[in-house]
Amino acid sequence: MNNVFVYCEIEGTTIQEVSLELLTKGRKLADQLGVQLEAVCAGSGIIGQVEKQALPYGVDRLHIFDEPRLAPYTSLPHTDILVNLFRKEQPQICLMGADVVGRDLGPRVSSTLHSGLTADCTSLEIGDYEDKKNNRIVKNLLYQIRPAFGGNIVATIVNPDHRPQMATVRSGVMKAEILDPDYKGEVIIEDVSKFVPEEDYIVTVIEREVKAAKNNLKGAPIIIAGGYGMGSKEGFDMLYQLAKEIHAEVGASRAAVDAGFCDHELQIGQTGVTVHPKVYIACGISGQIQHIAGMQDSNIIISINSDPDAPINQIADYVITGTVEEVIPKMIKYYKQNSK
């Protein structure tokens, strides 16, 4: 009772990275609250597959729902599973990924249970809440911290009265870390028919095409990102040349994507990918708040900008004032000269 639950998203028989990140976070929250971490896996042919993926993250109880019609994901059966499981188990916190599945499932579950849900959190903490209206203090609530208003403000949201406290978190925001490869957790194989009524398998997936991601921005140690200042598609070619030399991935700001300089998949920021590389080289990026929200945790930030007052320079470790056309070829040249 009152444990922390993580809904694990599954593609085929593989738990998605975002869910492993949330298990890691969920373990920490559970420790802080002195409760257990429970995970929910629902899919087809997953018994014997998901246990070794989930348990090492410190899962105390793993609920497995295995039935052919649970994959690919559709909203109603997965909602039934969480709703009926939560009615029985009364979790205090439920976390899920802020991707297509989590953002489809979360609101439906929260609406059924009348519990609050906060989308796209960038940070989760435990803390107290002073309810001034009712003159009381609610202890150990989940602070659900998220950007709002197009990234211009950060709001801390709490759900003082309703359980579970639900939050979605984007992939890449938290870090996945195995707690103990031999962690012993209880595995519970649930009877799906007790959770999902037959009539809820009414939406059918007729065709499905999933491609592996073309880039590896999330895991890249070095990222070279181009902004509107790159001027053109051809400008981005220069970034690819540098990227090839120093083994980096190329990313972009929204302005560059909107201008058609590169593919949408490269977008870094609040509405794109969140990254935390070792080195982030921002080329011709002014530094809109939305962009900075997606890269500010980079270890070292290098900004190349002709405008010495570009906002991004404030968070940069190195500010190179100059045009990208001038600076990048020089970087390539001196890298070639000096690296072995």
Binding site: S110, H114, S115, G116, L117, T118, Y129, D131, Y143, Q144, A148, I153, V154, A155, T156, I157, V158, N159, P160, D161, H162
Partner: peptide
């Protein structure tokens, strides 16, 4: 159910 605790 959700309350805004703080806005920054």
């Amino acid at each position: 159910p959700t309350k805004v605790k703080q806005v920054e």
